[in-house]
């Protein structure tokens, strides 16, 4: 009964602390992004205006929109996808070594196995993600160009040409997004496949140990029966 009460109190405390931590983390992320926005804005004024004009403007605008969104995503995902799992792994591994070191040694094999897949796929995923960022910047550049030259496009009846060019860029973006999404999922899945392989190995190992124990117990009982029969 004491244990159940302690667990219930623990759940309440951890839930409350978790909610408070979520709020604090969201606030820290927002404050960090505010600082970063101000830093980029200051850098924008420090830079000398380049001759390439609209192309650079689109790149700078992309820093404020897509690049900052990527940083925000990385910061927000850091706790649920990196910090908390890392802590779980550290505490879980320590506990496992304290409880059953042989099982923990087998379980520790998960680390190299889980890293092999992502090591192969991750560079491609990074490249694909960078290409997608460039494609997004190109789409933004097109939109900006069309907004600023709207009157001229109408006057020279260039709408169809501009639309075809824009659709071409968006199609490129679709291909890039698909590739990035697929490779990103593959990074995660390849780590999962390593873990599944290890579980199969561990299950086989457990079955072997259990069979050995059964044989040993059977041999022991047969031996004790024969000793009893001799007496």
């Amino acid at each position: 009964m004491t244990l159940i009460v302690a667990m219930t109190i623990g759940v309440a405390i951890v839930a409350a602390a978790g909610l408070w931590r979520d709020y604090l983390y969201a606030r820290v992320c927002s404050l960090m992004l505010r600082d970063l926005r101000a830093e980029i804005f200051d850098q924008l004024h420090r830079l000398t205006p380049s001759s390439s004009g609209s192309e650079d403007n689109a790149g700078e605008t992309a820093h404020f929109s897509t690049d900052l969104a990527a940083i925000e995503h990385a910061l927000v995902s850091a706790v649920p996808w990196a910090l908390l799992p890392a802590l779980d792994v550290a505490i879980g591994t320590t506990l496992l070594f304290m409880l059953e070191w042989r099982l923990a040694v087998i379980a520790a094999l998960v680390f190299p196995l889980a890293l092999i897949g992502p090591r192969i796929v991750a560079p491609r995923a990074t490249r694909a993600s960078r290409e997608r960022k460039d494609q997004e910047a190109a789409v933004l550049r097109d939109v900006q160009e069309n907004i600023s030259a709207r009157q001229m496009i109408r006057a020279f009846r260039l709408e169809a040409l501009m639309r075809a060019r824009f659709i071409g860029r968006v199609d490129h973006l679709v291909a890039g997004s698909t590739r990035t999404g697929f490779l990103g999922a593959l990074v995660e899945r390849s780590a999962g496949i390593g873990i599944l392989l290890l579980q199969v190995v561990r299950a086989r190992h457990s079955i072997r140990i259990r069979r050995l124990r059964i044989r040993r117990d059977a041999a022991d009982s047969a031996r004790s029966r024969s000793i009893a029969a001799r007496r």
């Binding site: 667990m7 405390i13 820290v28 404050l31 960090m32 908390l84 779980d88």
Partner: peptide, 26 residues
């Protein structure tokens, strides 16, 4: 980026450790 908010970051880290310890103890 976190340096100006290290006090808040320390509280968040404590919360994370508490959460992970509880998850492991269940």
């Amino acid at each position: 980026w976190v340096r100006p908010y290290r006090g808040l970051a320390a509280v968040i880290a404590l919360g994370l450790i508490l959460e992970a310890a509880f998850t492991a103890s269940v």
